[in-house]
């Protein structure tokens, strides 16, 4: 699993990247009440806003950590957005992308680097 400075995570399996928000981000947001996942078929670049996560208080953009075509969006989040809080780095995934350039993945932080990054925040 790799992480971004915007607190997204991504796991790469073959050329399919699964993306979500980190446990730290979910804790900071508080209770998630709505998630807008991207439409399947949409193409995104690394850094594009591609989903929105909303708490009681505010809406926050979720940025694509890696470029590609959206091939799946988590259907659970429509009726159970709280899954993002309950299981942020697994069942609370947002979307899957078919990745164009796997080297973008290698450039992201691993967990140790992300933990170190959080210490500096």
């Amino acid at each position: 699993m790799r992480f971004t400075k915007d607190h997204e995570w991504v796991v790469l399996e073959g050329d399919i990247a699964t993306i979500g928000i980190s446990a730290h981000a979910a804790e900071q947001l508080g209770d998630v009440v709505f998630v807008e996942t991207p439409e399947v078929g949409k193409t995104v670049k690394a850094g594009d806003s591609f989903a929105v996560v909303e708490s009681v208080k505010a809406a926050s953009d979720v940025y694509a950590p890696i470029g590609g075509e959206v091939v799946d969006a988590n259907p659970v989040l429509g009726d159970a957005p709280e899954t993002v809080n309950a299981d942020p780095e697994n069942g609370g995934w947002f979307a899957k992308l078919k990745v164009a350039d796997a080297s973008e993945y290698e450039a992201l932080m691993d967990r140790a680097a992300y933990e170190t990054f959080l210490q500096t925040q």
Partner: peptide
């Protein structure tokens, strides 16, 4: 204080 450890939903 915008929220305490309980968070907005529980506080509400």
């Amino acid at each position: 204080p915008v929220q305490y450890p309980d968070g907005v939903m529980k506080e509400h």
